[in-house]
Amino acid sequence: MLKVEGIHTYYGTSYILQDVSLTVNEGEVVCVLGRNGVGKTTTIRSIIGLTPPREGNVYYKNQKINGLQPFHINRLGIAYVPEDRQVFPELTVYENLFIAQRSNNGDNNAEWTIEKVFELFPELGRIDKRLAGKLSGGEQQMLTIARALVGNPELILLDEPSEGLAPKVVLNLLEALKVIKKSTSILLAEQNAVFALNLADRGYILEKGRTVYEADAETIRSDKELQKKYLII
């Protein structure tokens, strides 16, 4: 469904991604692991088009999408949940969802509506008139995920969802993501490997802007040497 082929991305003059390749198949949850600063966020931003790669290609459903604008990429069915939440602080919870709402074409029972995401995240339903800027970190994280969902994407790019959240909130999030993954493919960038491998089917490891390792989640989970080398801080 998503195929990233040898992309190289610059952030201003810094050379961040120096050859990243990965694929996400339909229905899969794929995680991108690695320490801080190896290029996980830039990988996600390169796919959604916010920092377009200078070399290499990104294909979505066999269509080349690098070079398209973010809004165009989103309309093809890819949602983006940025790492630092990025809710619209001056809009209410409901308005944040209302502007992101989009129906998918086929009639699908699994279609996400605002009511349905409030069932998934009951906390949000109770504070739907509150300004998003006034929410806690955990509530904002739920809101950005809910905001991505109501656009009814087929693939969600999820950047560091567990970052800065209390352990209990992370557990809630994990439960919600397990529900979401039943109907949506996910590409998850995470520093928290335990959290990511709990959810993912497959994983890639990034090191200095390169994909250096690929395996199924079980293999990465059990390979302590690998974790020591690339993941443990």
Binding site: I48, L50, Q69, P70, F71, N74, R75, A79, Y80, P82, Q86, F88, P89, E90, L91, N96, I99, A100, R102, R147, G151
Partner: peptide, 15 residues
């Protein structure tokens, strides 16, 4: 209003 806070995010939502 959303774009005056965060243009990139608005674009990423398909606007």
């Amino acid at each position: 209003r959303a774009a005056s806070d965060n243009r990139d995010m608005v674009s990423s939502l398909g606007v």
